[in-house]
Protein backbone atom coordinates (compact mmCIF):
# COMPACT_ATOMS: atom_id res chain seq x y z
CA UNK A 1 0.00 0.00 0.00
CA UNK A 2 1.48 3.32 -1.03
CA UNK A 3 1.97 6.20 1.41
CA UNK A 4 -0.69 8.20 -0.37
CA UNK A 5 -3.35 5.50 -0.02
CA UNK A 6 -2.32 4.87 3.59
CA UNK A 7 -2.78 8.54 4.41
CA UNK A 8 -6.11 8.66 2.61
CA UNK A 9 -7.28 5.56 4.50
CA UNK A 10 -6.24 7.05 7.84
CA UNK A 11 -8.24 10.21 7.09
CA UNK A 12 -11.23 8.18 6.05
CA UNK A 13 -11.18 6.01 9.15
CA UNK A 14 -10.92 8.96 11.47
CA UNK A 15 -14.58 9.62 10.72
CA UNK A 16 -15.31 6.80 13.19
CA UNK A 17 -15.40 7.86 16.81
CA UNK A 18 -13.13 6.15 19.30
CA UNK A 19 -11.00 4.52 16.59
CA UNK A 20 -7.39 3.53 17.14
CA UNK A 21 -5.31 2.77 14.05
CA UNK A 22 -2.03 0.90 14.14
CA UNK A 23 -0.02 0.15 11.02
CA UNK A 24 1.75 -3.17 11.60
CA UNK A 25 3.41 -3.46 8.20
CA UNK A 26 2.98 -2.12 4.68
CA UNK A 27 0.03 -4.43 4.05
CA UNK A 28 -1.40 -4.95 7.54
CA UNK A 29 -3.44 -2.44 9.49
CA UNK A 30 -4.86 -3.05 12.94
CA UNK A 31 -7.92 -1.06 13.94
CA UNK A 32 -9.54 -1.09 17.38
CA UNK A 33 -13.06 0.26 17.62
CA UNK A 34 -15.87 0.24 20.16
CA UNK A 35 -18.27 -2.63 19.42
CA UNK A 36 -21.16 -0.40 18.35
CA UNK A 37 -19.01 1.39 15.74
CA UNK A 38 -17.99 -1.75 13.85
CA UNK A 39 -20.90 -1.89 11.35
CA UNK A 40 -20.22 1.73 10.40
CA UNK A 41 -16.50 0.99 10.03
CA UNK A 42 -17.06 -2.05 7.83
CA UNK A 43 -19.57 -0.13 5.72
CA UNK A 44 -16.99 2.58 5.22
CA UNK A 45 -14.22 0.11 4.41
CA UNK A 46 -16.37 -1.83 1.99
CA UNK A 47 -18.24 1.01 0.35
CA UNK A 48 -15.57 3.68 0.07
CA UNK A 49 -12.20 2.00 0.43
CA UNK A 50 -12.68 -1.19 -1.60
CA UNK A 51 -12.27 -3.74 1.20
CA UNK A 52 -14.75 -6.11 -0.36
CA UNK A 53 -13.29 -9.45 0.73
CA UNK A 54 -14.04 -10.68 4.24
CA UNK A 55 -11.16 -13.05 4.78
CA UNK A 56 -12.24 -14.30 8.19
CA UNK A 57 -13.87 -13.51 11.50
CA UNK A 58 -11.80 -14.76 14.42
CA UNK A 59 -12.96 -15.02 18.01
CA UNK A 60 -10.74 -14.99 21.09
CA UNK A 61 -12.03 -15.79 24.55
CA UNK A 62 -10.42 -13.47 27.12
CA UNK A 63 -11.89 -15.23 30.12
CA UNK A 64 -9.95 -13.17 32.69
CA UNK A 65 -11.36 -9.93 31.26
CA UNK A 66 -14.86 -11.45 30.98
CA UNK A 67 -14.80 -10.51 27.30
CA UNK A 68 -14.81 -11.98 23.81
CA UNK A 69 -12.67 -10.37 21.15
CA UNK A 70 -14.00 -10.50 17.60
CA UNK A 71 -11.59 -9.74 14.78
CA UNK A 72 -12.85 -8.97 11.28
CA UNK A 73 -10.15 -9.38 8.64
CA UNK A 74 -11.01 -7.57 5.41
CA UNK A 75 -8.87 -7.42 2.28
CA UNK A 76 -8.83 -4.92 -0.54
CA UNK A 77 -8.09 -6.25 -4.02
CA UNK A 78 -7.23 -2.69 -5.08
CA UNK A 79 -4.99 -1.43 -2.24
CA UNK A 80 -3.52 -4.88 -1.56
CA UNK A 81 -3.86 -4.42 2.15
CA UNK A 82 -5.60 -6.19 4.99
CA UNK A 83 -7.41 -4.37 7.75
CA UNK A 84 -8.09 -6.30 10.96
CA UNK A 85 -10.85 -4.65 12.95
CA UNK A 86 -10.84 -5.67 16.61
CA UNK A 87 -13.83 -5.28 18.92
CA UNK A 88 -14.56 -6.54 22.40
CA UNK A 89 -17.97 -7.67 23.60
CA UNK A 90 -19.10 -8.76 27.04
CA UNK A 91 -18.81 -12.50 27.63
CA UNK A 92 -22.28 -12.52 29.12
CA UNK A 93 -24.75 -12.55 27.41
CA UNK A 94 -22.44 -12.89 24.38
CA UNK A 95 -24.63 -11.28 21.76
CA UNK A 96 -23.53 -9.27 18.76
CA UNK A 97 -24.82 -8.10 15.38
CA UNK A 98 -24.36 -10.06 12.20
CA UNK A 99 -22.52 -8.40 9.32
CA UNK A 100 -24.11 -10.76 6.79
CA UNK A 101 -25.81 -7.92 4.94
CA UNK A 102 -22.37 -6.43 4.21
CA UNK A 103 -20.34 -9.60 3.73
CA UNK A 104 -21.98 -12.88 2.78
CA UNK A 105 -19.05 -15.07 3.94
CA UNK A 106 -19.86 -13.86 7.46
CA UNK A 107 -22.66 -16.43 7.59
CA UNK A 108 -20.20 -19.31 7.85
CA UNK A 109 -17.89 -17.65 10.37
CA UNK A 110 -20.74 -16.47 12.59
CA UNK A 111 -22.30 -19.92 12.56
CA UNK A 112 -18.93 -21.42 13.46
CA UNK A 113 -18.31 -18.95 16.29
CA UNK A 114 -21.83 -19.51 17.60
CA UNK A 115 -21.19 -23.23 17.69
CA UNK A 116 -17.75 -23.03 19.26
CA UNK A 117 -18.13 -20.05 21.61
CA UNK A 118 -21.87 -19.66 22.04
CA UNK A 119 -21.99 -16.07 20.77
CA UNK A 120 -25.33 -15.28 19.18
CA UNK A 121 -25.25 -13.07 16.09
CA UNK A 122 -28.50 -11.20 15.59
CA UNK A 123 -29.57 -11.22 11.96
CA UNK A 124 -27.32 -14.06 10.83
CA UNK A 125 -29.15 -16.31 8.38
CA UNK A 126 -28.38 -19.60 10.06
CA UNK A 127 -27.36 -20.19 13.68
CA UNK A 128 -28.01 -23.93 13.44
CA UNK A 129 -25.45 -26.56 14.31
CA UNK A 130 -23.01 -27.55 11.62
CA UNK A 131 -20.02 -29.45 12.96
CA UNK A 132 -21.10 -30.45 16.46
CA UNK A 133 -24.46 -31.83 15.40
CA UNK A 134 -24.78 -34.26 18.28
CA UNK A 135 -22.97 -32.33 20.96
CA UNK A 136 -25.10 -31.08 23.81
CA UNK A 137 -22.34 -29.91 26.15
CA UNK A 138 -21.09 -26.34 26.55
CA UNK A 139 -19.50 -24.53 23.58
CA UNK A 140 -16.16 -26.35 23.49
CA UNK A 141 -13.81 -23.54 22.44
CA UNK A 142 -14.58 -21.49 25.54
CA UNK A 143 -11.61 -21.37 27.84
CA UNK A 144 -13.49 -22.81 30.81
CA UNK A 145 -14.18 -26.03 28.88
CA UNK A 146 -11.37 -28.44 29.72
CA UNK A 147 -11.43 -31.17 27.09
CA UNK A 148 -8.99 -33.38 28.97
CA UNK A 149 -11.11 -33.26 32.15
CA UNK A 150 -14.20 -33.99 30.04
CA UNK A 151 -12.54 -37.06 28.53
CA UNK A 152 -11.39 -38.34 31.93
CA UNK A 153 -14.88 -37.92 33.26
CA UNK A 154 -16.84 -39.43 30.37
CA UNK A 155 -14.50 -41.91 28.69
CA UNK A 156 -12.05 -44.51 29.88
CA UNK A 157 -8.42 -44.96 28.86
CA UNK A 158 -7.46 -48.17 27.15
CA UNK A 159 -4.78 -50.33 28.62
CA UNK A 160 -1.85 -50.75 26.27
CA UNK A 161 0.50 -53.45 27.38
CA UNK A 162 1.41 -55.69 24.43
CA UNK A 163 3.71 -58.72 24.90
CA UNK A 164 6.67 -57.02 23.22
CA UNK A 165 6.50 -54.15 25.69
CA UNK A 166 6.20 -56.54 28.63
CA UNK A 167 9.27 -58.44 27.37
CA UNK A 168 11.18 -55.19 26.95
CA UNK A 169 10.36 -54.01 30.44
CA UNK A 170 11.18 -57.47 31.92
CA UNK A 171 14.64 -57.17 30.41
CA UNK A 172 15.03 -53.84 32.10
CA UNK A 173 15.00 -51.95 28.81
CA UNK A 174 12.77 -49.37 27.23
CA UNK A 175 12.07 -45.87 28.29
CA UNK A 176 9.65 -45.97 31.16
CA UNK A 177 8.57 -42.52 32.19
CA UNK A 178 5.37 -41.94 34.12
CA UNK A 179 2.83 -40.54 31.62
CA UNK A 180 2.24 -37.46 33.72
CA UNK A 181 5.83 -36.35 33.29
CA UNK A 182 5.98 -37.29 29.62
CA UNK A 183 3.43 -34.70 28.71
CA UNK A 184 5.00 -31.29 28.52
CA UNK A 185 1.68 -29.81 27.59
CA UNK A 186 0.32 -30.62 31.03
CA UNK A 187 2.95 -28.63 32.87
CA UNK A 188 1.62 -25.34 34.09
CA UNK A 189 3.57 -22.31 32.99
Amino acid sequence: MSQEIAHWLDNLLEEIEGIEIRRKSSRRVRVDVPADALPALLELLQGRAGYIHLSAISCVDWIDDEEFELVYHVWSYENHSLVSAHIRIAREPGVYLSVYDLYQPAAFFERDIHEMYGIHFEGSPNMGKFILTEWDGPPPMRKEFDSEAYINEHLSWQEYNPPWLQALIAEGGGVVIPPEEQRFSRKKS
Binding site: A56, H73, P105, A107, F108, F109, F130, S185, S189
Partner: peptide, 18 residues
Protein backbone atom coordinates in the same frame (compact mmCIF):
# COMPACT_ATOMS: atom_id res chain seq x y z
CA UNK B 1 4.46 -21.78 26.35
CA UNK B 2 1.32 -22.62 24.35
CA UNK B 3 -0.75 -20.62 21.87
CA UNK B 4 -3.66 -18.75 23.42
CA UNK B 5 -5.70 -19.06 20.26
CA UNK B 6 -5.17 -20.41 16.76
CA UNK B 7 -7.87 -19.82 14.17
CA UNK B 8 -7.55 -21.63 10.86
CA UNK B 9 -9.30 -20.12 7.88
CA UNK B 10 -9.19 -22.73 5.15
CA UNK B 11 -10.29 -21.72 1.65
CA UNK B 12 -12.74 -24.60 1.62
CA UNK B 13 -14.74 -23.14 4.50
CA UNK B 14 -16.26 -20.97 1.78
CA UNK B 15 -16.08 -23.32 -1.20
CA UNK B 16 -17.44 -26.44 0.47
CA UNK B 17 -20.28 -24.79 2.35
CA UNK B 18 -21.94 -21.66 1.02
Amino acid sequence: PKPYRVHVRGPSSMHAVQ
